[in-house]
Design a protein around this nucleic acid. Structure first.
Lengths: 337, 337
DNA sequence: TTGAAAGCGATACCAG
DNA sequence: CTGGTATCGCTTTCAA
């Protein structure tokens, strides 16, 4: 900046104004500075900038208040990042809202103080009232991204999560390949409200129909993360379809499923493809109860949300390819330690 | 630091000395400062420290000089990181050494000036002369990590790369699961010198023998990344084993293999599991020539190497779990865009 | 519309 | 052994 100031024949303060698009600089002056910047090949030192600014970014994660291992894992990832980001002048907060109750999320969103919170990562269903609440808080100058489950109806949206259609396709490819005999494949889903589950189901059906037409995929059953309900559903499914050879668990809560499988299908059970590498899923994979798990790295989700929101707050662009969350596949052989 | 200085009743300079283990401070003073640090819950601001220090870390990557797409991808990842790390006062350099010639690597290692280079990430074979050269440069105060292929014989080693035994196991699980009929499985490797290839082969054999005893795995053939040679080897293999149903390509150069498969096995070829998601591998996966690809993220490799080397240079510990490189599995369905 | 100067949190050099 | 102080690259008053 000193060099630029010298070359442009202005003061440091003016260079700063130009660099940060601050008002109160004549066009000619801007041009002079701009030229100097270009010729000198200047790259800004964000660390120094933040140091001087003493700015602290506050980012709020709004998560569903379930006892789900997946959400617990997300919270852990958030705590993890908190540590590191403290040095980076970024503060992370978490709020919980009852799932399946949009009004709570709306309330949480409306309760946000724009002076206290710079950005929000929202993991919730896609409903009109939530969409409106997102609009409102954005209008008050807070950046918002959708987390895990997309909210495409809201404008200027960025989504932090995997491509769930592709994830469903991946699940289907694994299922189809792993199945040795023809039969019925059951899709076990969480809730119809959740857009991520819907998309997975869609992708799964497409590939199964296309590439494995010999297998019969039956209408999904909604488990709502309720072990008792799931137990019930599965019992009925195995009754109705004696040739049940595969289960695609597109939701993230595996308690009911694992419980049922471990007790009712001793030895050789159906091929099971599930989502999210939770502690339970790890064990199931290791024990041969699950055959494959599709995962989205929770650390990546959190880091990406933070990066995108910070970029948004600063009004700078981010690198979309870097922010694409990968669809991880785990077998028992490549489980991380 | 100001607070600490005040509470401890010493100057900033002394606090700095204690904080950085610099010599020339009495024990009592150290204790006073230490107490102040503890009571105040001080966390050091690395950004400010680096700013003041104006220190620039220089890290050298020594890579095999092949035309391989994998190495090209690594170089690209290094360039990518260079951009971002410039702001972080870290400079990345790349040197190439002919593979299969340990002496060149030794020469490259010996040529390093400890005043210019702080750390080295070495991607090379495991030979006694290289091990000695690593010892020498370490003795001169330069940190070294092994990249992609482990060098476990050298002491104080850290390895940046995947667990290749587990990777081989993963490949075998995919191969065994994907195969629909019994037959012969061929392992195509790069070089016997490369420890990573050996380990993969080992893991592959174990799981094939254990879980898929119906399949016959035949002794690996060494392609040395030579398309003509590979073409030749494959022709002979298909002659010798008319029931060849699967190929495990444990090396990273796919040119010869893909060329052979696309011309000689029109339509339904063998099940192919390969390593490294290079542009060629992507196409092969998309076109159905490859069935699965096992990958180690090149960006992760580079970032991890840099983090570990910087920690090493600074004499601070790093988080081993964070530095574990994952074994990625790609099918055509979860290919990143 | 512009400039001067005081920090931000840490390091490093020179004195004492 | 210890302290004072200039400095790193940038932001932010306060004046002019």
């Amino acid at each position: 900046m000193n060099d630029i100031a010298r070359v442009a024949g202005v003061s440091l303060a003016t260079v700063d104004r130009v660099l940060n698009d601050r008002p109160g600089v004549r066009k000619v002056t801007i041009a002079k500075v701009q030229t100097a910047i270009d010729t000198l090949g200047y790259i800004r030192d964000t660390a120094a900038a933040n140091l001087a600014r003493k700015r602290v970014y506050t980012i709020l994660f709004i998560l569903p208040a379930t006892g789900s291992e997946f959400v617990a894992g997300l919270e852990e990832a958030i705590r993890d990042q908190s540590q590191k980001l403290a040095l980076d002048r970024t503060q992370l907060r978490v709020a919980k809202a009852t799932p399946f109750d949009p009004q709570q999320i709306v309330a949480a969103l409306d309760a946000v103080d724009p002076h206290e919170v710079d950005g929000i990562a929202l993991f919730g269903p896609e409903t009109p009232s939530i969409r409106d609440a997102v609009r409102r808080i954005r209008a008050r100058g807070v950046a918002v991204v959708a987390l895990v489950s997309d909210l495409p109806s809201s404008d200027r949206d960025h989504f932090v999560g995997i491509d769930n259609l592709a994830a469903g396709r991946t699940a289907a490819q694994l299922m189809g390949r792993f199945l040795r005999i023809q039969g019925t494949v059951l899709v076990l889903t969480g809730s119809r409200l959740a857009r991520d589950h819907l998309e997975r189901r869609q992708g799964f059906d497409l590939v199964m129909a296309d590439e494995f037409p010999g297998q019969q995929v039956v209408a999904s059953v909604e488990g709502r993360d309720d072990p008792a309900l799931i137990n019930d559903l599965l019992t009925r499914a195995f009754d109705s379809y004696p040739d049940l050879v595969g289960i695609y668990a597109s939701a993230a809560d595996h308690a009911g499923l694992i419980q049922y499988l471990s007790q009712s299908a001793p030895g050789k059970g159906p091929v099971v493809v599930a989502h999210e590498l939770t502690p339970m899923a790890r064990r199931a994979l290791r024990d041969g109860v699950f055959d494959a798990v599709i995962n989205q790295d929770r650390g990546h989700l959190v880091r990406s949300a933070v990066r995108v929101l910070r970029a948004n707050v600063d009004g700078v662009p981010f690198n979309p390819t870097q922010e694409r969350i990968r669809i991880d596949i785990y077998l028992k052989e490549n489980l991380p330690a």
